[in-house]
Computed example of a mutant assay.
Amino acid sequence: MQELLTPQEAANLLKVHLRTVYIYLRSGELPAAKVGDNWRIRPSDLEKFIEKRMVKDTKK
């Protein structure tokens, strides 16, 4: 099983505010599991989340 990330760890990796991660979690844009009152994020889901938001160079 993969090591799971906390929202704070995800925020640190993304270099965004913790509130931003919670917005993505609550909206369902960032897949995660809720364990009790705590969110946990698979690193592979975070990578997919980032890949979906990559901007392609359209000037080629």
Rank of each mutant, 00 (worst) to 15 (best):
H17E: 14
V35C: 11
E3P: 13
K48H: 06
M1S: 13
I41Y: 04
N38L: 06
V55I: 10
L18D: 08
K34C: 08
L14K: 09
L18C: 06
D45V: 09
P7C: 09
I50L: 13
K60G: 02
R19E: 09
Q2I: 13
M1A: 13
G28Q: 02
R53N: 09
L25M: 02
S27W: 00
G36E: 07
A33Q: 14
R42T: 03
K52F: 05
V21S: 08
T6P: 10
P7W: 12
V16T: 11
N38P: 00
M1F: 05
R26S: 01
Y22E: 12
E51R: 00
K48M: 03
T58E: 10
E51Y: 00
L14E: 07
R53E: 06
D57F: 09
R53G: 06
W39M: 01
L5S: 07
E3M: 12
L30K: 12
M1N: 06
K48T: 04
W39G: 03
N38F: 04
L30Q: 12
R40W: 11
Q2C: 13
N38G: 00
R40D: 06
L13G: 04
P7E: 12
L25R: 00
E51L: 04
V35Y: 11
M54F: 04
I23C: 03
T58H: 12
P43C: 12
N12V: 05
W39H: 01
P31F: 09
P7N: 10
D37L: 14
T6K: 15
K52P: 03
D57K: 14
L4F: 10
F49M: 07
D45A: 14
L25P: 01
V16E: 10
L18N: 13
Y24V: 00
E51N: 02
M1I: 03
E51K: 02
E9S: 08
V21C: 05
R19A: 07
V21E: 04
L25C: 00
W39D: 01
D37R: 15
V55A: 12
T58K: 04
V55T: 06
K59Q: 01
W39V: 03
R42A: 13
R53Y: 07
K56H: 10
T58C: 07
L13D: 14
K60T: 03
M54D: 00
R19W: 03
Q2V: 15
E3N: 11
K34W: 01
Y22T: 09
G36V: 06
L14I: 08
K48G: 02
G28T: 00
A32S: 14
H17C: 12
T20K: 12
K59P: 02
K52G: 07
Y24W: 15
W39C: 01
F49Q: 05
V55S: 13
T58N: 10
E9Y: 00
P43E: 12
K15S: 15
V55F: 10
Y22V: 11
K59H: 04
G36D: 08
A33C: 12
P43N: 07
E29Y: 04
A33E: 15
E3W: 05
H17P: 08
I41K: 08
T58R: 09
Q8L: 04
